[in-house]
Nucleic acid binder design. Structure first.
Length: 939
RNA sequence: GCGGGUAUGGUGAAAUUGGUAGACACGCCAGAUUUAGGAUCUGGUGCCGCGAGGCGUGGGGGUUCGAGUCCCUUUACCCGCACCA
């Protein structure tokens, strides 16, 4: 018998039908409740989709379809994060414009996505590299440029409110979310009127006397995106700077190239102004604890105090940040980072040579070495002494590279008794370890517990660390050498990239002052996609007339980072064709937050943080009405590949089967998984695979086969273990693949890809087909369905509805299988059952459901069918068997009326005392009847 | 080191509030049917044991009439952060 279930023609037919009828187009409709279901949009790489990509897309598609059946107006769009490095690198190699490469890749992606039957509204597609889109990315940049963070109102405000304040009262009463020591970076040559004591404060009269240029220079230190010299992660191999989240273990996340610290003039985003709100906002959103925790760690809030230590024989002060001000009486030395600006000033003549040698050595160490040699203790005494603010005792000042220049103030007060690193340092250099805790042994290690009672600590004696904390800070504030302070690990995000394939800045320069452009700046053509010979970004190759707008002395030639476009794309879907605004407020008010966002957790410190930042900013400025973008997020696990290996005998072209590999010195090589079936190598195919294997020899196993080794690894082109969805769709159909990917296991879990079970899922769809059809002929009865069939159906409605509500995609497939098995056993072909079953099936197997729906005689789309209602009465049973247990063992079954409540069953059992005695020999003393189905009798 | 997570048959996994652990599927075994179809159907399949029976959710302890589920403790693996003062 030929295939009854002809998935190829069915799927093709309905794809065309949906496309022609605009089945998935959606518009705002106030009469319906909205639901916004979103996938993280992909970067269209040249490799195309592999089976891991659709996992999340299928899950969100199912959810979107389900919500549509529930009567919601569902926004479910898709687009492309189409600026990025691979297209640019391909351009460098081949000279092909990245736009061309991107367009080709995009076409491939679209074809692959189309085959999977997603219900995207493609009329809303966005592409970040499209000028129509990035015009608004540039616009948002401009809004950030024209804004500052007012900590008094705790929101971003237009820069005009800041200049108004300056005009009225100068810096007095200005409480901005910028670096409190911004004035240190001000170019003093530009401000000859400032005395050497200038510390960031000026009056209204000062402000009014500033030239326009001076005003702009000051304002630059307040803007939410600003141009400044800063220490950046420079990656020479990529020829660009990277943000902290793009650097992992001292090397670039993409490509694994070394990264060094470099001082460069760059655009930055003042995300630090939002640190506290990014932290507190986490409590309002439904994300996993793990990803919230990653963001919390990344923001790294720590509460403590700033303390100033005066220096002996020097006018300067050392400022430190500490989370343990209560242990201040345990300070026995200070440590500065080798890069600390005070080091050169305070070092005594006799220590000068040693200190400089140490500084040089520290500088030579790469970031990576510094991290990996954590255990090595090194340091150098400067010869200088600080003064303990409470006791007046001299405290020696050291430098050591365990203190980081970039965190806090780059200086610490060392308390060996309370901090393990300080303790180790003290032991190593034989420095004193003052005992400041009552009854704590400090011979082996430091005691970091805040619950310990303090001793030898003057007015703090007898208090625990918890209690002493506040008292101590109060005392320091009173005496003027300390302040309560909250420190964040989060740094401002570098926003410039020295690349071609990104958004140009809407910025030009006049006398080296950046000026905004209020119009689209498109990417100019260039003759090569490489930096210029002077190390300028590729855009510097463009001639003045190549720019669509050219103003001032020169244009900004950096481009924006990859995360710029992806930080707001979810808003553009709401109003994708608007040429007047990035998104009309009425549209964003209707669609609101993303109700369900599905994507990988690898974006925790990148995209997911930046999106929250921009959303909060746009909210502050009144452009949208919500300040968290993604209400609920689910992170799908990665699908891993199963790589296959062959074993080549060293220095030969002879390959030995897996079983015998240990008899030789072999080299393990990846082999393309398409040449391997059930771990057996297709030898002829292998020879044809690569020219160097054409005359390979093989040592086979006892069955005359070549067995490959295998391992679960990340799917990647270089490991030849990529499984594309295309061939599976070809063989089994999109509906089978959709069900199978969900059936694999919980969405959140990482799992190796394995096609072993796909037949089972395919068989289920065929079995389902046979419920409706005899061969290709419809067989549906209009008679009343049996009680059993109604029970099977309603059990399934209940289960599937609950599962979809709680996001358990995998168990739904099992529930459908059980239902089909039961209906098959019952010989059920009744319309009253099959019709609702088709709707239950529709989210998972949309093509098949549509076909069956039309075969049932409907002219409309199954997508518009209402989700079947669950009716409890069909699940009620007349009689229930209550197993009765004695000491955990089932002794007899008690048949009772299903309507009885547990109390009544208990009475019934007591009335059956004779039976119980017969089984046990004794009468039951205590009977517990639970609403489940079990009765325990304790004897 | 800190934080988060996972652990159940040969395999992927179910078990939603503590209630007959292993649903559903793969694989495997036996049989039927058929002979070129990645076929279909029937039965079996946690482990030990011929059996009655015993043992079973990483290990140990606890709460409970009853624990995969709750509490304590411990081990292994995965992910993230990491001289952050």
């Amino acid at each position: 018998m030929a295939h009854d279930y002809d998935f190829r023609s069915i799927e093709q037919k309905w794809r065309k039908h949906w496309d022609a009828n605009g089945t998935y187009a959606v518009t705002e409709d106030d009469s319906k409740e909205k639901c916004y279901v979103l996938d993280m949009f992909p970067y269209p790489s040249g490799a195309g989709l592999h089976v891991g990509h659709p996992l999340g897309y299928i899950a969100s598609d199912i959810y979107a379809r389900y919500q549509r059946h529930r009567g919601k107006n569902v926004l479910h769009p898709m687009g492309y994060d189409s600026f990025g490095l691979p297209a640019e690198q391909y351009a460098i190699q081949t000279g092909q414009h990245p736009a061309v490469t991107t367009a080709n890749n995009l076409k491939r992606y679209r074809e692959q996505l189309d085959k999977l039957g997603f219900c995207y509204d493609w009329s809303r597609e966005v592409r970040t590299s499209d000028p129509v889109y990035y015009r608004w990315t540039q616009w948002i940049f401009a809004q950030l440029f024209d804004a500052w963070y007012n900590q008094d109102s705790d929101r971003a405000e237009h820069i005009d409110t800041l200049t108004a304040k300056f005009n009225e009262n100068g810096t007095y009463n200005v409480n901005a979310g910028n670096d409190p020591e911004w004035w240190k970076d001000l170019d003093r040559a530009e401000f000859p009127q400032f005395s050497e004591h200038f510390a960031g404060e000026f009056t209204a009269v000062d402000w009014q006397s500033f030239t326009e240029r001076q005003r702009q220079l000051v304002l630059m230190h307040y803007r939410l995106t600003y141009l400044a010299d800063s220490w950046v992660n420079w990656c020479p191999a990529l020829g660009t700077v990277l943000a902290n989240d793009e650097v992992k273990d001292g090397v670039s996340e993409r490509g694994g190239h070394p990264v060094e610290q470099k001082r460069m003039r760059q655009w930055s985003m003042r995300i630090t102004a939002y640190a506290e709100r990014l932290l507190s906002g986490l409590d309002t959103i439904d994300w996993t604890d793990s990803i919230k925790e990653v963001q919390r760690n990344w923001i790294g809030r720590s509460q403590g105090a700033s303390v100033w230590f005066e220096l002996k024989d020097h006018s300067g002060k050392i400022e430190v940040f500490t989370t343990r001000p209560d242990t201040i009486f345990g300070v026995s030395f200070m440590v500065l980072a080798p890069e600390h600006p005070l080091v050169a000033e305070i070092t005594t003549a006799d220590q000068k040579a040693a200190v400089e040698a140490y500084q040089t050595a520290a500088k030579a160490k790469s970031e990576r070495d510094r991290q990996s040699n954590v255990k090595d203790i090194s340091g150098q005494f400067t010869g200088a002494y600080a003064v303990h603010p409470f006791t007046g005792e001299p405290v020696p000042v050291w430098i050591a590279d365990y203190v980081l220049a970039g965190y806090g103030t780059g200086a610490v007060m060392a308390v060996p008794a309370g901090d393990q690193r300080d303790f180790d340092f003290a032991k190593h250099f034989d420095l004193p370890i003052p005992a400041i805790f009552e009854g704590v042994d400090l011979s082996e290690e430091a005691h970091a517990d805040k619950g310990a009672v303090l001793a030898n600590s003057d007015f703090l004696n007898g208090k625990t660390g918890y209690d002493a904390m506040g008292v101590c800070i109060d005392a320091m504030e009173e005496q003027g050498f300390g302040l309560r302070k909250i420190n964040y690990r989060l740094r401002d995000a570098v926003f410039s990239r020295q690349r071609y394939w990104g958004e140009p800045f809407p910025v030009y320069y006049k006398d080296e002052l950046p000026q905004l452009l209020d119009e689209l700046v498109t990417l100019p053509p260039v003759d090569a996609y490489l930096p210029t010979e002077d190390g300028e970004p590729p855009l510097a190759r463009a001639k003045n007339e190549d720019w669509n707008v050219f103003k001032g002395d020169r244009m900004e030639t950096n481009t924006m980072p990859g995360w710029a476009g992806s930080s707001w794309y979810f808003l553009r879907y709401m109003d994708p064709h608007n040429t007047k605004a990035f998104c009309d407020r009425s549209k964003s008010d209707y669609w609101g937050q993303v109700d369900l966002y599905i994507g990988g957790s690898e974006h925790a410190t990148g995209h997911l943080l930046y999106s929250r930042f921009w959303t909060k900013f746009l909210y502050d400025m009144g452009y949208i009405g919500f300040d968290e973008p993604f209400k609920k997020m689910i992170n799908q696990g990665m699908i891993l590949g199963r790589s296959s290996f062959v074993y080549r005998i060293k220095d030969s072209n002879r390959f030995v089967t897996f079983e015998k590999r240990k008899e030789y010195q072999t080299q393990r090589l990846h082999v393309d998984i398409s040449l391997v079936e059930n771990d057996t190598l297709n030898v002829e195919g292998f020879k044809a695979w690569r020219p160097e294997y054409a005359d390979a020899e093989f040592e086979l196993n006892d069955e005359g086969k070549y067995t490959c080794g295998h391992e679960v690894e990340k799917m990647s082109k270089s490991k030849y273990n990529v499984q594309t969805p295309d061939e599976l769709v070809e063989r089994f159909g999109a509906d089978t693949l959709r069900c199978y990917e969900m059936f694999l296991g919980p969405l959140e879990q990482a799992k190796p890809w394995d096609t072993q079970g796909i037949n089972g899922v395919h068989n289920f769809l065929r079995k389902l087909w046979r419920l409706f059809n005899e061969g290709t002929e419809v067989r549906v009865s209009n008679a009343d369905p049996s009680k059993d069939s109604l029970k099977s159906l309603h059990k399934t409605i209940k289960k599937i509805t609950e599962d979809l509500e709680r996001g358990s995609w995998n168990t739904v497939v099992s529930a459908l299988m059980i239902c089909v098995n039961e209906l098959t056993d019952q010989g059920c072909h009744h319309r009253g059952i099959l019709e609702p079953l088709t709707v239950l099936l529709a989210p998972y197997a949309p093509h098949l459901a549509e076909e069956l729906w039309s075969r049932l005689g409907h002219s409309g789309s199954v997508n518009d069918a209402t989700w079947p209602a669950f009716d409890e009465k069909h699940l009620k049973e007349d009689e229930v068997n209550y197993p009765v247990q004695f000491n955990g063992k089932v002794k007899f079954q008690l048949k009772v009326d299903a309507s009885l409540n547990p109390k009544q069953v208990e009475e019934l059992l007591l009335a059956n005392e004779n039976t119980a005695q017969f089984l046990d020999g004794k009468a039951p003393r205590k009977i517990i009847v639970v609403p489940g189905r079990i009765i325990n009798v304790v004897v």
